Computed example of a mutant assay.
Amino acid sequence: MEALFFSTGIVALAEIGDKTQLLALLIAARYKKPIPIILGIFVATILNHAGAAALGTWITGFFGADTLRWILGGSFIAMAVWMLIPDKLDDDTKLLDRFGVFGATLIAFFLAEMGDKTQIATVALSARYHDLFMVVVGTTLGMMIANVPAVLLGEVAARKLPKHIVHRVAASLFAVLGIVTLAI
């Protein structure tokens, strides 16, 4: 259960102000159809994070416990630093119009998550907890916790959230996890 709860919390915090949350706001403002947008985010996240978690689980077979501990600890600390760097969103959703609301959302979110903080976090969390299913459920739930309100409440909610504080809290959690991983 620790994998589920930690994965949910860390990804929900990491997603606040992230480019995919900004993308959720952009798509919601453009299409004004929350159900297909939310479903597109959900499917894209499951596909993306399942692949990332599988990679994290697979990687653990190639390294000894001590080497893996240093890699994971360093990765979590690097994530802490990365959390403090604001995201910017490059908008070119015109190409996605032909796929409809669900398809546009699914494609945009899947591509936006490639190499994103939450995808890298999913790889590291899966390697750390060795529980692919709970990590995918947790990271997907974290993405939905952060993005569904963005879709439903739109830009007003995004302006009221103190992104810099949320990013600092998430960075602190990654740093603590990195230090704990290195200390074990």
Rank of each mutant, 00 (worst) to 15 (best):
A44G: 04
V151T: 09
G178F: 07
N48D: 04
L23F: 05
V123S: 05
L23E: 03
G100S: 03
I77S: 07
I37A: 08
A29E: 08
A14D: 12
V166K: 10
R98A: 11
L177N: 10
I35G: 03
A171M: 05
L55C: 09
T45V: 07
S7H: 03
D66S: 10
I77P: 14
V123P: 13
L125W: 02
V137G: 07
L132H: 01
G40W: 09
T105D: 03
Y129V: 01
L173W: 06
S7N: 04
M114E: 02
V43G: 07
A78R: 00
P149T: 10
R128L: 15
L84G: 13
L22F: 11
L141Y: 02
M79L: 15
M143E: 07
K19C: 02
I16E: 03
F110T: 05
I71Q: 05
G138L: 08
I145L: 13
M79H: 07
A108M: 13
V148H: 04
I59A: 15
V176Y: 12
A53E: 00
S7R: 01
L173S: 06
P86K: 09
R30A: 13
T60L: 01
A121H: 12
K163Q: 09
V135M: 06
I37K: 00
I179L: 15
F5C: 03
N48V: 03
W82D: 12
L23Q: 02
L22W: 09
S172T: 15
A50Q: 00
K32F: 00
S7K: 03
N147I: 07
G100I: 05
D131V: 07
K19P: 06
L39Y: 10
V166D: 12
F174P: 04
D97H: 12
R30G: 12
A121K: 01
I37Y: 08
S126P: 10
G64P: 02
W58T: 06
G100H: 07
L132N: 01
L125I: 07
L23V: 04
M144W: 09
L72E: 02
I38F: 12
K33M: 06
K163C: 00
H130R: 14
T67S: 14
K117Q: 10
G154P: 14
I59K: 01
V148I: 15
L95W: 07
